[in-house]
Amino acid sequence: MEPPTMAESPPAEQLESVLHTTVETSTNWSLDPPTEAARKSVSLHWAEILSLVVALVGLVGNSIVLWLLGFRTQRSPFSVYILNLAAADALFLGSYFGLRMWVIVGDLDLVILDQLGRCLLGLSYRMGLSLLAAISTERCLSVLFPLWYRCHRPKHTSAAVCAILWALQGLFSGVFGALYFLNKDDLDDFYFVFDLVQFSWFLLLTCVLGVSSLTLVLRVQCSSQRRRPPRLYLLVLLTVLVFLLCGLPLGVFYAVWSFKGFPIMFYGLSRLLACVNSSANPFIYFFLGSQWRRRGREPLRVVLQRALGEEQVGSVGGRDTSHPNTLDELS
């Protein structure tokens, strides 16, 4: 999700506000008293620094998850989703950190920076939301239709869904960026359609995410009276909750800005919350996978497998083997 691009060249103040080459979020601050404007600038300056620190920490955490799931563990249907979610979060955090550092230390073309931000950050944000909706929907189906999910779910569903989502989001961002540079003078209607499609996709996936998550909450609430809910259910619910609290404000900010022309909150705060959302997932995985009563340190690979519902059940030929916990015993 990104600020709308108009066919006409925006005023310099608005372009600087969109790209945040200063610590201000609105040119209207020039009307504020000097002390009030200085206080707001200082607060947003620290928000900017904090967002860069959070992005760097989250980039390291998601890189660890990518390494473990990509090269150190046996993949399961659910781990494929988590692998792609970590890739989307790492792309968002890496792009944000790189673009902000480029603004701070480099002499660059603001138009190019704007388009890179729109393509990279928009792609990774929409991809993260799409993957969360797919994850929660699949967990919801496993609860509502456990027999079908066990016996008739296609084997490569996770990989196919992830590939389709990456292709759609990549095509969307690629076409937008290409057309902007090819002919940006006669595309007012085109940009409006893009904003409308983008908002519709955001609204649809948010509704799907909310309904499927609410179904999981009710299922976990009913089953918790009989037994402890599996870690994977808690993992999905916590990940969705963090997105609703931290990731959703950025999408709402852009949606309102696209159609109303004014922000409903400071962009610096929404960026900081979005960085927290993308950085929090690895900590959720390792927190849920840890066994605090067990003494001694466990490999991160084992902790991550436990969080994803993969339990070590034995060894074959000297190697540990694992099987995915279907988590359908609640049904």
Rank of each mutant, 00 (worst) to 15 (best):
E2A: 03
M6P: 00
E8S: 04
S9L: 11
S9A: 10
P11Q: 10
A12E: 10
A12T: 07
E13L: 06
E16F: 07
V18M: 03
T21H: 10
V23I: 09
T25G: 03
T27C: 11
T27H: 12
N28F: 03
P33D: 15
P34K: 13
P34N: 14
T35H: 14
A38M: 12
L44Y: 11
L50V: 05
L52G: 06
V54I: 15
V57M: 01
L59C: 03
V60R: 05
I64P: 00
I64Y: 00
L68F: 01
L69D: 01
R72V: 02
R72W: 02
T73W: 01
R75M: 08
R75F: 00
P77V: 11
Y81Q: 05
N84T: 11
L85W: 01
A87D: 00
A88H: 01
A88Y: 00
D89K: 02
A90Q: 09
G94H: 05
F97K: 00
L99K: 06
W102G: 13
V105M: 11
G106F: 12
I112T: 09
L113H: 08
D114N: 09
L116T: 04
G117M: 03
S124I: 01
S124W: 04
R126I: 12
L129D: 02
S136F: 10
T137M: 12
L141A: 05
W148Y: 14
W148S: 15
Y149M: 09
R150C: 09
H152M: 14
R153V: 10
K155V: 15
H156F: 15
H156S: 14
H156I: 04
S158H: 06
I164E: 06
L165E: 08
A167C: 08
L171W: 15
L171Q: 06
F172V: 11
S173M: 09
G174P: 00
G174M: 12
A178C: 06
L179T: 06
Y180N: 13
D188R: 13
D189V: 06
F190K: 08
Y191I: 03
V193L: 14
F194E: 10
L196Y: 11
L196M: 14
S200M: 14
L203Y: 00
L203F: 09
L204K: 00
L205G: 02
L205C: 12
C207P: 00
C207A: 14
S212R: 07
S213I: 06
L214W: 11
T215H: 06
T215D: 08
R219W: 06
R219F: 12
C222S: 13
S223H: 11
S224W: 07
P230T: 09
L235W: 05
L235Y: 09
L237V: 01
L237W: 01
L238S: 07
V240L: 07
L241M: 12
L245C: 10
C246T: 13
L250I: 04
A255P: 00
A255Y: 05
A255G: 07
V256Y: 05
K260G: 15
K260W: 05
I264C: 05
M265I: 08
L269K: 01
S270V: 15
L272H: 01
N277F: 04
F283S: 01
S290Q: 09
W292C: 04
R293D: 07
R294K: 13
V302F: 05
L304R: 01
L308H: 05
G309Y: 06
E311K: 13
G314R: 02
R319T: 12
L327C: 15
D328R: 15
E329I: 08
E329S: 11
L330C: 10
